[in-house]
């Protein structure tokens, strides 16, 4: 367990440095939008981070870093003492996180294309990169939820765990009177 947390710590430090780099970067003009010329309650987009290659890649790695953090955290939660269960659980979590990485990349790529070519491809009535976000990035973690639901008694809280907990509880109650 300590090994995962130690790697996570190094990853977090790198993520912190990435935020510092973003902070120091030349922010594209009106990168967070500007009040629309015709409608005062609407914001209009400014230049995107894809305008310069430096900010484009920093923003990309920022996203990958966040997904990496989610991955580390969920691995910490997937720890089990029994090695066989742990391996199975880690395999499922690793596949789930791999899909997450891939979908994030597909979405980002699709958006870069959208920015460069201004292409108007739609999927179910919304632009393709936005569709990747809704139908891909949002739903892919259901893969991990599925295993949590179906393998709960085998992986998360087994009958042995339940019996062991009862034993711990009884011993504690006896000790404390």
């Amino acid at each position: 367990m300590d090994t995962i947390v130690k790697i996570f710590f190094v990853f977090l430090l790198a993520f912190g440095l990435l935020i510092v780099a973003l902070w120091m970067s030349d922010v594209p003009q009106n990168a967070t939008g500007i009040t629309d010329a015709d409608y005062k309650t609407l914001v209009h987009s400014g230049q995107t981070v894809a305008t310069t290659s430096a900010t484009k890649w920093l923003a990309y790695f920022f996203g990958m870093g966040i997904i990496g953090i989610f991955g580390f955290v969920i691995f910490i939660g997937g720890r089990k003492k029994e090695a066989t269960i742990r391996k199975k659980m880690y395999r499922v979590l690793a596949i789930g996180m791999l899909f997450y990485f891939l979908v994030f990349n597909a979405m980002t790529n699709s958006w870069w294309n959208y920015v460069e070519t201004n292409s108007m491809d739609y999927f179910m009535g919304i632009p393709k990169p936005t569709a990747w976000m809704f139908f891909g990035l949002m739903t892919i973690p259901l893969f991990m939820s599925f295993f949590y639901i179906t393998k709960f008694k085998q992986w998360v809280y087994t009958d042995e765990d339940e019996a062991r907990f009862k034993e711990i509880l009884e011993n504690r109650q006896q000790r404390n009177g």
Binding site: A31, G46, T48, V49, A50, P129
Partner: peptide
């Protein structure tokens, strides 16, 4: 505005 990041931007 209808792209994945809206008007706020990616970061």
């Amino acid at each position: 505005a209808i792209g994945p990041w809206g008007t706020l931007g990616m970061v």
